[in-house]
Design a protein around this nucleic acid. Structure first.
Lengths: 166, 166
DNA sequence: GGTCGTAGCGCAACGCGTTGCAATAGCCAC
DNA sequence: GTGGCTATTGCAACGCGTTGCGCTACGACC
């Protein structure tokens, strides 16, 4: 036995995994992940459960490294390759989006409500989302330029934020 | 002795290094690199000479890996770390610009005539430059959005080019 | 031409991300 | 509950890029 976690059917944790799709009126998109996986012939494993638990607490931008570190806290046997592969799977379900930060590292956006690009400040290191209207403007400009159809989720633009310009 | 190249003052190659700053009316920006380095207290070494020779034949976009491979052809003792460090130096002189391609790898633009962003097609893998006017539009849009001052050289936007959209 | 301070070199090790492969374990059917 | 198919895991190795360190050799000065 490699995992010290309880059985895969363990339901002692506060968050239900697949039953109870809408808890009151607040349906978390994470509810039902297990079923969505199984419906596609994929599997619900302890490793995936751990990652989903971590993602629940990180709605926003996270680096892959952060996710791996946090998974390791919950399950010391976590392996990087498994996390990356699981993130790929979750991306196919639309639950996360990855992009490349300005320094080239992977950055994940959890539960994207709308497709958007990112701004990275080289001064303070913070990341902002490009507003949808501004994003649309960029998409249109590039379409007009070379007929290019861009994928905003992969856009990370480096620069300096207002606070870091002096 | 680690290098099998001739002395640093070897002038048997067709391209002059520092004398003869303007060859006829076509002054290569690479002429005078040696002097520019020395003027800043930096040095003109066989390794740097090799890289500059490689860059002369690559005016456009190149990946760091390509540059290293080509340097290795000219000098089998070439070390990656040296190439990366030399590229940094040349970037400070404005002779190259680096950016992160959509897949996160380093991409160098040799002799940039103007600052520009890049478009990367996920279909065919080609890279296009964003036209200056379009770039300016993007810069303005982001400035208006969050007061962000962007550095276009670091922008690489992924998408599909016109030819790859069907 | 010889001396010497230091910029730069090669090496080795690291971090991030990916991939191939053999072993494991979900989960479906009976 | 059992069996079996195969998705998934963990490992090990790789590729790209970076960094720290001790030694080399560039090039300025005499």
């Amino acid at each position: 036995m490699r995992h010290n976690r309880a059985s895969n059917e363990d339901r002692t944790l506060p968050q239900p995994d697949s039953p109870n799709p809408a808890r009151g009126s607040v349906a978390s998109p994470w509810d039902g992940v297990a079923d969505r996986l199984r419906a596609s012939g994929l599997r619900w494993t302890p490793q995936r459960r751990t990652l989903v638990e971590v993602l629940r607490e990180h709605e926003g931008h996270v680096t892959a490294t952060d996710l791996i570190a946090r998974c390791r806290e919950l399950d010391r046997t976590t392996t990087p390759s498994t996390v990356y592969r699981t993130l790929d799977v979750l991306e196919n379900l639309g639950l996360v989006r990855h992009g490349h930060a300005a320094d080239g590292r992977e950055e994940y956006h959890v539960l994207p409500e709308h497709v958007h690009g990112h701004l990275h400040c080289v001064g303070c290191g913070a990341t902002w989302e490009i507003r949808p209207e501004t994003g649309a403007l960029i998409v249109d400009a590039l379409a007009a330029d070379l007929g290019f159809s861009v994928d905003l989720t992969h856009v990370t633009i480096a620069g300096r934020c207002q606070g870091c310009q002096e």
